[in-house]
Each structure stands twice: as C-alpha cells, then as structure tokens.
Design a protein around this nucleic acid. Structure first.
Lengths: 211, 211
DNA sequence: CGCAACATACCAAACGGTCGGTATGTGTCA
DNA sequence: TGACACATACCGACCGTTTGGTATGTTGCG
C-alpha cells in the first residue's frame, strides 16, 4: 500500500491558510484594517511565505475574493434548497435558506466580497472586479430558477429574471449592513421576510403556500 | 452697514472642513484607508488643528457620523417628497426621491454611515453606534408616514411600519453595495424599482397609480 | 491678561515590501 | 543508479515610509 505519489506539486497549504485567515480577518476588520502581519500571525506563516505566494497585499485581496467565489459556490451547490421540483419552490427555498444561515456571530455569516467591494471599489479596481465576479456569478445561479418559474407559470412580468436575482442579492447585502450597524442579526432576517413576501406577490402566490 | 458680529464663537471652521473632508474621503477610501494626514491635507489644516478638535482618529469617526446625521436630516427635511397630502403618496415619493438622487459619481450619492458601519462594526463600537443612530434616526422619519398610510387605508398587515421602514433602508444600503461592486449606479436604481413595486403591493395599489 | 485656535517639529510603532538564504523535492541523462 | 540542474516552499532579518499621536510654541481677540 504505497502512498500516492504527488505529481502536481501540491499547492502549498500555507497559501490556503492565508486565504482562510484573510476571509475571517477581513470580514471582521476590513481590508485596510487587516495588516500583512495580522494575516501571517493568524495563518501561522512567516512574511516570507506570504510574499512567496502573493505578489502584494492587493494580490491577496483578489485571491481571497476568488477563493470566496470557489468555496461559496461549492457550498450553495451542496445546499438543500435545490430539492423541490417546482422552480418557484426552489427560489423560495433559496430565500428561506439564506435566512436560516443568518445566525451566530456577525463576522461568520456576512459576505466577504460585499464588505470588500464596499471598501475598496475606488482604490483597488482589481479587487472590486473579483468581488463583482463572485457576487454576480452567484446571482446568475438563481436567475435560471427565476426564469424557469416565470415561464412555467406564464407570468407576464415587467421585470426580468436577471433584475430580480440581483434585487435578491441587494436585499441580502443590505441586510448585512443593517445587522452590523444595529449589531443584531434579527434585522437581517426581517428583511428576508419582506423579500419572501415580495417574490410570492410577483408570482401571485398566497402567503400560506409552503416553500 | 456693519458686518454681523459673531456671537456664538463660531465653532471653528477647521473643524467643519475636517468633517467635510472625512465625509468625502471615507466614502471613497474607507475609514482605515484614510489617514489623518490625508484628512488634514484635504481640509487644508495642520495636524495640530486636527488633534485640537478631535481627541483621536476614532473620535473624528464618531463626529463624522454625527455630522452626517445632522446634514442629511436637514437635507431630507427640505426635500420635495413631503408635499403630497396622502401619506402613502409621500412614502412612494420618498422612494422616487431616493432613486432620483442616485446619479453621478458613486462616492457622491452613497451613504457614509452605511460604509462606515460595515467596516468598523467590530473594531470601533463607538463609531458603529453613531452610525446606527444616524441610520435608524432616518428610518424613523419614514416610519410615521408608513403607519399613517396603513391606518388611513385600513390595511390589515402582517408587518409593522417599523420593519417596512427598515426594509426600505435595507434595499437602499444593498443597492449601494451592488452599485459599487458593478461600478454602475443603474443597478442601485433597479432595486428601488422593485421596492416601489413591493410597497404598492402591500397597499393594494396598481402599478399605474401616480406618486 | 487669558484662553481658544491653530502651527511646527517631532516620536515610537507599525506598515508593506525586499532580500539572501535553506530545505526539499523533481526531471533528466549518462 | 546516481548525480547534476533546477524549481518550489518557506524563513526571518531588515529597509524606508507612513502611521496615529504628542509636546511646545505662536497668534489674535475679547
């Protein structure tokens, strides 16, 4: 029983630990508020390792946003809300799922790329664009279900699936801002209830219809 | 024709210039990304003046949030959306007004206290609380019109005026996040259209009803 | 005079980033 | 098989600059 030979020279795990540290520290303290030394300490690596893997702090920011895109898309793909056969039920289940995962520490359920984009949109366009790719890549996955629901139910809409998918993201991002300001996750959940009610309205559903 | 004597020993205008610089720079670069030197340069004052007026950089952050609360509440009080006699019309006019002022440079129409709270909610509770006061002080002004509209129209609601006022703020804050990520104000306006549609639904209004 | 409103010069710490070096593979060809 | 060339991963001392903050004036006005 031989150990598998490592062909591709295993992408160092210092790199991964730094990306995880970036995810956690930036969500709690912001990008500018997190120093390279902070990141190295949290990841338990040296500064040499940091600049071996990333050309600059800004490059780490871009990589962190890409890392976020990868890990969250895997997370949402594996999530239970894809179960229902009816596409509208999947959309409502998505909203319910987003509401359900809002709990515990604020830094643990809020969005890295939303925080990051808000902070550096003007000073670091590379990071901003990586955040946009992550955010709108995610809304695109919801868009398909919304469009399918619209067609299946023959809804004549003066809105597009794309805009409703983006509006859903708007409510989620805004909910995080209010939760942070008030230091209370309940405010975020509250807005997701309004979003749920709005979507049911657009599809002529009663409030009682189960998701 | 004598010059008006200044009685109240005019709260130094270096202080005001610093607060204005803080408002503009923090919206563009974030709080941690804006240095005391940056602020002094933009306000054309020296560091001595800065620390004469503010005990620390964090104290300036609190003062900037308070300054934002004062100036925006004056701005919204003077805004035209208070005109309509019907309270619901005032609410819809508010949403239309918020949409109308989204134009030009992103840093010019986005919200200081939203940005600030998102960045420092965990590391500077004093600033966060000042942001919360500004934000929820503003939503409270909308809440009155929403509640009046609900009573005037005899709406039996499973939501409160308070929560709808906060949801409105949620959509506005989230709209700013998406506009920054995509570098496009149009995305912010788009979500305000969804919000308008939602409010009309809650009050059983047709889409055509004029605001 | 006395005090508020500044200006100037300075400081220690923290910052992002560089650099010479080591340890450990890995591919290749005689 | 072994040895040479080269690559990757990482270390930690060090560098120049910027940081938030302080100490000590100076100025002008009631």
């Amino acid at each position: 029983m031989s150990r598998p030979t490592k062909h591709a020279p295993e992408r160092g795990n210092a790199r991964t630990r730094l990306l995880e540290a970036a995810r956690d520290l930036i969500r709690a303290k912001g990008f500018a508020g997190t120093s390279v030394d902070d990141l190295c300490k949290a990841a338990d690596v040296t500064k040499g390792a940091f600049f071996h893997h990333f050309a600059s702090k800004e490059a780490l920011g871009v990589a962190a946003a890409d890392f976020w895109a990868e890990t969250t898309s895997a997370f949402f793909e594996a999530a239970p809300y894809h179960g229902p056969a009816d596409p509208l039920d999947r959309v409502l289940a998505y909203v319910a799922f987003r509401k359900a995962i809002i709990e515990g520490e604020i830094a643990e359920f809020t969005c890295l790329v939303g925080t990051l984009a808000q902070e550096v949109y003007a000073s670091a366009p590379g990071i901003r664009d990586a955040c946009a790719r992550s955010m709108f890549g995610h809304t695109a996955t919801l868009e398909a279900d919304i469009e399918a629901a619209r067609q299946a139910r023959g809804i004549k809409a003066d809105w597009t699936a794309e805009s409703l998918a983006r509006h859903t993201q708007t409510v989620i991002q805004g909910a995080f801002v209010l939760a942070k300001a008030a230091n209370d996750p309940a405010l975020a959940r509250e807005s997701l209830d309004h979003l749920d009610r709005y979507i049911r309205h657009l599809f002529h559903l009663t409030r009682e219809h189960a998701a």
